[in-house]
Design a protein around this nucleic acid. Structure first.
Length: 210
DNA sequence: TCATTAACACGGG
DNA sequence: CCCGTGTTAATGA
């Protein structure tokens, strides 16, 4: 376990902290599409990502999802931080984008470390900062970009996240993440294909340019 | 004008 | 047959 933490966090945390993490942390593996946190859940432990990726979604009153951002290795969930400390219900939904490994840290420890380790404090602040930036990015995208640009951005983000030019996804799943209808996604994807940006196959989208 | 909804045909697994 | 895809027509914001 020490190795897993070290390989992803040694540049952030001092040795003593890494040792403490390995003492109290619990390794958790989740499969693609597993729901880690749902809206209304109380969160009692905080996740540190070791591998894989998690997508964070916001939900409207009718239960429609909207993609906010992704978490990757070395990230943690800022929502969890505020939920844990404030004992609030979760405002977001977290779903595994691919098979993912996490270390779960009990809330009491993370409070303790905040005063004990400077590197931990920095990490927490830095996480907040990064998540806020990504949130602004998501807002920009929704407010200022038209759906076709949003779609392209979505595909590019996903491509970089998976580090793969071939995305295995259906038009309906994209429509769910962007909170729009499949008809539109199909039409826009078709036009992207005409522009030679992507190639469409059943259940698959292949990037032709980067 | 552009998105959404419903409906339909096509085709691969 | 079922599901994903591509398209159209009607309707709405």
């Amino acid at each position: 376990m020490i190795e897993k933490i070290s390989s992803n966090y040694s540049f952030l945390f001092e040795k003593a902290l890494i040792e403490e993490i390995s003492e109290v942390g619990i390794i958790k593996k989740v499969a693609k599409d597993d729901v880690l946190i749902d809206i209304g859940n109380y969160v009692r432990s905080m996740p540190l990502l070791i591998s894989g990726a998690i997508k964070i979604l916001r939900q409207d009153n009718d239960g429609n999802d909207l993609l906010l951002y992704f978490l990757e290795k070395g990230d943690t969930c800022a929502m969890t931080l505020s939920c844990c400390l404030g004992q609030h219900q979760s405002e977001i939904k977290a779903v595994a984008e691919v098979d993912t490994e996490l270390i779960m840290i009990p809330v009491q420890k993370m409070e303790e470390w905040t005063s004990k380790y400077k590197s931990w404090r920095n990490f927490v602040f830095e996480s907040y900062h990064n998540r806020l930036k990504e949130m602004l990015d998501a807002i920009d995208s929704i407010a200022f970009l038209k759906l076709d640009d949003r779609l392209l951005k979505y595909l590019k983000d996903k491509k970089e996240l998976l580090n793969n030019d071939l995305l295995e996804i259906t038009h309906q799943q994209i429509a769910n993440d962007l909170n729009t209808s499949r008809v539109v996604v199909s039409r826009l994807l078709k036009s992207l294909e005409k522009k030679q940006i992507i190639k469409l196959e059943r259940n698959k989208i292949r990037f032709l340019v980067s």
